[in-house]
């Protein structure tokens, strides 16, 4: 009753404004019409979730966007703390995009993301294929592979800090020294350049964000996240009908040919989902890097945090966060488009 009354009111208002045929009016009409029928309860039950989303996602996001458009800093007025947000338009974004440090942070983040994804696609798929085979102790192997994922991120960071300690009592150095693979300890967490014996490659890698420390971060991060990637891919593998492989065997296809022609293409949809999730996580990588390096490896997230909470420039910090968000969104759109194309084909 109430909803049909609302529909009538909206119709009248629309008519009076002469915008009945407008898109907005049609949307309103459709929305309120749906309230009269079977969707009434559907909308009523959705209200708490929508309110919660508005409260904890939409409002903070709008507030953060407003902060990014201002010279936002902490001020004290009359003994009360406050955030002043003097409007500066897009100035924060312009300044950030003109800052070479931002682009270095961008390249560092890109290096971290791309190399991590490469590891996940190759080693992750390999692990998943291995876990999908029938062999003695397969269940125990699956459990062991999954253990690192159960370790909290901060604990993982501390653990790798001890493994990578640059003195000879660091776990990795100790093992390598005892095996006589190295003659003196390596400082794994130092952002020293790679390929120092090939100067042009070394400087290119340095420009790209590749360093000993960054590679160590990737190893530490992948050790913890590879299991979940492998398990997701394993779930994808298990949806591939066994008949395809049997038919391929009958046709005389080798194991590599089977992988190339059956496994890899059919893993596409789950792979896209994994890549979307992981790309977004990797672009926001923070805990491991901050715990082990503080501001020494300034990826985009660390740059945003430093601007806001160390320098007190909440405007710049928010702007960088939005740039990370836009970047994630763009990459997600590319992946999703690809996913739809695969499904359509």
């Amino acid at each position: 009753m109430l909803s049909s009354a609302i529909v009538r009111v909206v119709e009248r208002v629309s008519v009076s404004l002469g915008t009945r045929k407008s898109l907005l009016s049609r949307m309103w009409h459709r929305f309120f019409s749906s309230l009269t029928g079977e969707y009434l309860w559907f909308y009523l039950l959705l209200i708490p979730s929508i309110l919660l989303l508005i409260l904890v996602v939409i409002i903070p996001m709008v507030f953060a966007f407003r902060m990014s458009l201002g010279n936002t800093m902490v001020t004290i007025l009359g003994g009360k703390g406050n955030l002043s947000m003097q409007w500066v338009g897009l100035q924060n974004y312009i300044q950030i995009l003109q800052n070479p440090n931002f682009w270095q942070a961008f390249r560092d983040t890109l290096y971290f993301t791309v190399v991590s994804l490469l590891v996940e696609v190759t080693v992750g798929v390999g692990l998943a294929v291995l876990m999908n085979q029938q062999f003695f102790g397969r269940k125990i192997f699956r459990v062991i592979v999954f253990i690192p994922w159960a370790i909290p991120t901060i604990v993982n960071a501390m653990l790798w800090g001890m493994v990578f300690d640059g003195d000879n009592y660091g776990a990795l150095n100790d093992i390598l020294l005892q095996l006589h693979i190295i003659s003196s300890p390596i400082v794994w967490l130092n952002p020293s350049p790679l390929f120092t014996n090939i100067p042009w490659l070394s400087s290119f890698m340095n420009w790209m964000g590749g360093s000993v420390a960054m590679n160590s971060m990737i190893v530490g991060d992948e050790w913890r996240t590879l299991p979940i990637v492998a398990v997701l891919l394993l779930a994808g593998l298990q949806t591939i009908p066994n008949e395809y492989y049997e038919a391929a065997k009958v046709e005389g296809a080798s194991a590599w040919r089977q992988f190339r022609a059956i496994t890899f293409p059919l893993l596409g949809p789950i792979m896209s989902i994994v890549l979307i999730l992981r790309t977004m996580q990797l672009l926001r990588a923070f805990t491991l890097i901050f715990t082990l390096q503080q501001y020494g490896l300034p990826t985009l997230s660390i740059n945003a945090y430093q601007q806001a909470f160390s320098f007190g420039n909440f405007g710049s910090g928010s702007a960088i966060s939005f740039l990370i968000g836009i970047l994630s969104l763009l990459i997600a759109v590319v992946y999703i488009n690809r996913l739809y194309k695969e499904e359509m084909s």
Binding site: V74, I76, K80, G81, N82, L83, Q294, F309, S310, G312
Partner: peptide, 17 residues
């Protein structure tokens, strides 16, 4: 130590400390 400054900053942003 690494969290002290940001804690003071965010405390200062609140109406009451």
């Amino acid at each position: 130590y690494g969290q002290m400054h940001s804690a003071i900053l965010t405390s200062a942003a609140a109406p009451t400390a």
